[in-house]
Write a protein that binds this DNA or RNA. Sequence first.
DNA 1: ATCGTATGTTAGTCCATACTAACTCTTAAG
DNA 2: CTTAAGAGTTAGTATGGACTAACATACGAT
Lengths: 239, 239
Amino acid sequence: MKKTPATARTVRRGALTGQAEDYLKAIYEMEQGGEPAATNAVAALLGIAPASVSGMLQRLSRLGLVHVERYRGARLTHMGRRAALQLIRRHRIIESYLVTRLGFGWDEVDEEAERLEHGASTELVERMAAALGHPTEDPHGAPIPTSDGVVDERRLQSIADLAVGQTARVVRVSDRDSEFLRYLAAMGIRPNATVKVADRAPFDGPVTITVRGARHQLGVAAASRVYVEPVARTRRAAK
Amino acid sequence: MKKTPATARTVRRGALTGQAEDYLKAIYEMEQGGEPAATNAVAALLGIAPASVSGMLQRLSRLGLVHVERYRGARLTHMGRRAALQLIRRHRIIESYLVTRLGFGWDEVDEEAERLEHGASTELVERMAAALGHPTEDPHGAPIPTSDGVVDERRLQSIADLAVGQTARVVRVSDRDSEFLRYLAAMGIRPNATVKVADRAPFDGPVTITVRGARHQLGVAAASRVYVEPVARTRRAAK
DNA sequence: ATCGTATGTTAGTCCATACTAACTCTTAAG
DNA sequence: CTTAAGAGTTAGTATGGACTAACATACGAT
């Protein structure tokens, strides 16, 4: 017994190491724009060298998790997408649990979930989900894929896309930068908050918005990381 | 930036990988008998080849976590012991949390905690502990070291050490084998249960015990994995 | 005191993962 | 249409961690 080859002890569930899982998530995210995931983009997102990504793409390809077109980029296969969605589900459920059951701030949970998602069993994640009443969104407003890998990734507008005078409901905010999240929280920007664009500087300059009566300036970088759904004042069925 | 050498991404907190942490825990456990941890024993406990243990001992030694005496075995250094106790604290708090907050059975949590303990931040573990009111024992009766690494590892007797007629309170049970735990649970053996030795076969044969009025036979292997504190009927201060 | 078995260690491989350096494509600018 | 910059890949190296096979040590039994 115990003839398991080398890395077996570090492997969970589906025979994927934590690293490999991170790549799948990264590729999934990059792919959302429609284009295959670019090597350099994945490298930048994960903070590693492009050459390392090339290497990993070959391994993932061998495992049937991605299709790689040389010099073009990678796309997830069916299997790869399923794995990525499972991981994202884990991540978001864990984040939700940490916030609602253990009192973490929404700016603190991404990193923690990042580490836990690789070790947590499906059983644990499902128990957390059940304890929370099977939430459909995480604390940042991101949709939680179902255990069958179904997720509503509708294309969202960001504040940067709104016209002056428009009012919108915040649906979701980018969760990757805890400083940014604290900054948003300080202004009262969180899922379901209502924002109104008061002014916009030309040439993609900062946007002035009103949140709960207070005016704030948002740089483009920030504005484009807050996703909203315009509130239809003029009747034009908001679907 | 990101000149971090290779394994940095898999490393948590104190620059130790999950594997290395497992070794420390194993060595800590083996050492409890007073003797340095034997290579083969560690290998058996972790399910790996003895040669792999030799290799890891050298790495741990280089990191100042163990003292290795060639051909003799390993002992934890101060630092190593602290690391091991931190890990054990994590493990036991996580087990406790899973049982009391997420409805896991005591026979299901060892494996899960084994994986989570490497990814969970100190912050998370302390929040779990706080949520539980800072428990001092895990669900199997094992003491939880404090965050300063203090633990009451008093030498315990097992049922196998008791004489016929003696009554004892179950203090703790071995947690490594979930089948064994279910077997104990079925008999009503759990921390704080009272058992009485009704009979003992000679030559280390099975022990007959009474638990909550019912009689059961326990093999030596089982009996020696249930730790008890004799109940002093004859007055002779139970310390 | 010796010797054989247990136990332990070294040597040589392997794989995953990362890196740098050097090379190769792709593509946009002219 | 050419070409150079930027994107991507390969080659070569390192480290952690595991394996097997072969060698080394310790120690209890004779």
